[in-house]
Amino acid sequence: MRRTILIVLAALIAVIGLASVVTATTGGSSSVTRARLEKSLPVVFANTYVNQANLVGRNVTAASLHAKAMCDKHGPDVADIGPGGDWNCLMSWTDPQVPMPPEGYGKFELNVHSNDCFTASGPSKLTGFLTITDKHGKPVTNPLFEFDGCFDPHSDNAATGVYFPSLFAITSPNVTPTAQGRTTVKVNCGTGSQGCAGTVTATAGRVNLGTMPYKLKEEATGTLQLPKPVPAGAKEVTFEVKPSTGAGPTSPATIPVQPR
């Protein structure tokens, strides 16, 4: 009897092992891939967008939105495959009443499960907060605030070719010169393709403080040092960004000087 059980167990292990080898050699250990998310998310989004529009009494069709997404898992150095709560998708769509920000997309955060279902939460600036007011004036749950979707694990896995530029931003809330007169600002580069590169020109009033080149990977932070010291008595410093790769703020950023 024991021998039979051992044989059955061995057979089970052999079947599992064989199937594993077959799956491994036929490529892709996970059905959760960038291409499948990039195809599935816009469909779920567009349908949910129509639901939201109907709630507030607007008439929008899913096809008119032309939603497109680019997804990325956990920064540039991690392969874009497998479940996890670290998927980011950039999505653009066309709605005359909700213009896209200058970079051309909104950022969705996705929690993707191994069962090929995901929960996406939208950028509140574009998709609204948890509660919205419907056409009858009643507060209702915003379907776009957070929504679920599932995709076919056997669906086409060809790349979609959708790319969006990373967004470069100056994140320091203020500029603080050190005792030696050195001044630095913190910058970051958001999700997107190919990272951020370009120049930042700093001015304090009419004084040009110099131009700093920057080059950052996507989803990375960095520190830029101003070439010249901030003149004494300057209240604020203005930074003008000229991106060569990726997107940047379209208007100059003005940051107050924090006296030491």
């Binding site: 079947v15 599992i16 199937a19 594993s20 799956t23 491994a24 250990s29 996970s30 059905s31 959760v32 497998g82 479940p83 996890g84 499960h113 191994s114 069962n115």
Partner: peptide, 13 residues
């Protein structure tokens, strides 16, 4: 096991 990432090859089984 089915919910873990990385060993998804045995998930369908």
């Amino acid at each position: 096991i089915g919910g873990l990432g990385g060993i998804e090859i045995i998930r369908p089984l």
